[in-house]
């Protein structure tokens, strides 16, 4: 266990932003913090590096309190925030050199690490270019490079894929994997479960400052994902009637919602998936609904997150 979070609670002006949160992060893993905007992810990450002292509880880094050993521990942590913490008027090399010096690195180490991190984030060709002239994705990679410059044991990435297009997100995901492969423990936050699910070894779901769920994706799915999701599209699309009719027909409906002119039904994994589909196709005829499309999904972590953290 690298980090142990012990019952931390943080309040800002009577608003409890973190409420009795406890979990641990292992060395070398990619740990995801997931939660909606305002769930307390960033506050938690900042508490992790000792910036926000909790009202109660503690965070232990290799058994030492972060808040009592902040300066020492900060040397071992790299942090890339939602906004790129880089100087746009400095070149990539100058940015890296500056932050390296702030971390007390020697010239030789700065030189070596500059080369290393630029190779890692694949920006070697842009060494002397001004950061402000890079694309958004490149800036994000430079930001991560800056966070990696002093070879931290832990890299904290606050929503690393926010604002990036799918291709860039893929690049960042690959980069995160590469960094982990170098032995760095990575803690990242996001409000898109589908983005961090393939990356993370374990995740902690935050809901209004409380820990809603915690574990590996498989563990979470096993624990919470005991339903199917059936997506129906029909004409004229009187989905309320459909739900009523299916309930009268004896189908257990755990949950439902209409989204993008589609009906999403959550049903227990009591029957085989094709049995559900067949029954629903048949049931629509009496109520004069013409089926335009039907899809049955095994419940993903994303949906699980939605169910756990959103509702």
């Amino acid at each position: 266990m690298l980090i142990e979070i012990k019952n931390i609670t943080k309040t800002f002006e009577k608003n409890k932003v973190l409420n009795d949160i406890s979990f641990s992060i292992n060395k070398g893993e990619i740990f995801g913090i997931i939660g909606q905007s305002g769930a307390g992810k960033t506050v938690f990450l900042k508490a992790l590096i000792g910036f926000y002292k909790p009202d109660s509880g503690d965070i232990l880094f290799e058994g030492k309190s972060v808040f009592k050993n902040q300066k020492e521990i900060m040397k071992t942590i790299g942090f890339a925030s939602q906004r790129h913490s880089i100087y746009l008027d400095l070149s990539l090399k100058e940015n890296l050199k500056y932050f390296g010096r702030l971390y007390g690195m020697k010239s030789k180490d700065i030189k070596e690490n500059t080369k290393r991190v630029l190779e890692l984030v694949e920006l070697t060709d842009y060494t002397h270019k001004l950061a402000g002239k890079l694309s958004g994705g490149m800036q994000r990679r430079l930001d991560i490079a800056c966070a990696m410059m002093h070879s931290p044991k832990i890299l904290i990435l606050d929503e690393p894929e926010a604002g990036l297009d799918p291709v860039l997100r893929k690049h960042i995901a690959e980069l995160i994997q590469k960094i982990r492969n170098e032995g760095t423990t990575i803690i990242l936050s996001s409000h898109f479960m589908n983005e961090i699910e393939p990356l993370c070894d374990r995740v902690a779901m935050l809901k209004q400052g409380t820990l809603a769920a915690y574990g590996s994706p498989m563990e979470l799915l096993a624990k919470y994902a005991d339903n199917y999701e059936i997506v129906i599209r029909s004409y004229p699309g009187n989905y309320k009637n459909i739900i009523e009719w299916l309930k009268k027909s004896g189908i257990t409906i755990i949950g439902s919602k209409v989204e993008s002119n589609r009906l999403l039904l959550y049903v227990p994994q009591k029957y085989a998936p094709d049995a559900y589909v067949e029954y629903i196709v048949k049931s629509l005829k009496p109520i004069k609904e013409t089926l335009m499309g039907i899809q049955l999904n095994q419940l993903s972590l994303d949906i699980l997150f939605e169910r756990i953290a959103v509702k």
Partner: peptide, 13 residues
């Protein structure tokens, strides 16, 4: 107001 300000704050300086 610089985006880099935060990194200065978290640096052990």
């Amino acid at each position: 107001k610089s985006v880099a300000y935060f990194r200065n704050l978290i640096a052990p300086t």
